[in-house]
């Protein structure tokens, strides 16, 4: 079982993830239509690029936009969650050793303490995101089963990963579950709202071009995100 999950299944998951996301990107860009979207993408490339870059960058900075500033709790939760959810899988020592062995390369490695803090941060943030969905009427009315599903899907590798760390007695068992959960996540990213790992950048770039080219970017100082 372990051999299968760390062997063929690993390669399959990575392939589904990468190809799935690539298809998403290509289809999105090909579906852009200057007339329907009413944005002259081609005629004003430079203004478009500038608008897109600002639109992405400002939102990646904690408190970088007015929206982040007026909702500070959500901002902290969002960044704690997302920094962890991106950094831990990529920069954990164990993951890097695995990557080195399977794909022949590895990333920078996080100190163990930092990895622990980030992982617990992810789980705490996830808990708040769930409570928020239940407690706040304006979020409850929007929430569907899919939203809880992707929260659970994201939580699974972290929960199981932490159990591996703190329960050496059943390490082998939990490691199997952890790998399975991680691979399931990778496979489902392109097919769920988690595809926002790429569509976030596409959508933000698009609205940035819209404001950058058409809605004032060539007049004022650029959108005051």
């Amino acid at each position: 079982m372990h051999a299968f999950l760390t062997g063929p299944m690993f390669y399959i998951s990575i392939a589904v993830l990468v190809i799935g996301l690539l298809v998403r990107v290509v289809r999105y860009i090909r579906g852009l239509d200057w007339k329907l979207d009413r944005v002259a993408y081609r005629a004003h490339r430079k203004a478009g690029m500038k608008g897109a870059a600002r639109s992405i960058f400002k939102w990646l900075v904690p408190f970088g936009t007015r929206s982040w500033r007026v909702q500070p709790v959500m901002t902290v939760v969002f960044f704690v969650f997302h920094i962890g959810v991106v950094a831990v899988p990529l920069f954990l020592l164990a993951h890097n050793m695995f990557l080195e062995e399977k794909l022949g390369f590895s990333f920078f490695t996080l100190p163990a303490l930092a990895a622990d803090i980030l992982s617990w941060g992810v789980l705490a943030a996830l808990l708040i995101l769930v409570l928020r969905r239940i407690a706040l009427p304006e979020v409850r009315i929007l929430t569907t089963f899919h939203d809880y599903f992707i929260l659970a899907l994201t939580a699974a590798p972290f929960v199981t990963g932490l159990i591996c760390r703190y329960d050496p007695a059943n390490y082998d068992f939990w490691l199997l579950i952890h790998i399975a959960a991680g691979e399931l996540l990778l496979i489902l990213i392109p097919f769920t709202k988690l595809s926002h790992v790429v569509t976030f950048f596409l959508s933000r770039a698009q609205i940035g071009m819209d404001f950058g080219i058409k809605r004032g970017g060539m007049k004022g100082k650029g959108m005051a995100w």
């Binding site: 639109s55 969002f78 569509t199 976030f200 609205i207």
Partner: peptide, 9 residues
């Protein structure tokens, strides 16, 4: 549109 993190208008 200015307040949505995904840039949804």
């Amino acid at each position: 549109a200015m307040y949505c993190p995904h840039g949804i208008d």
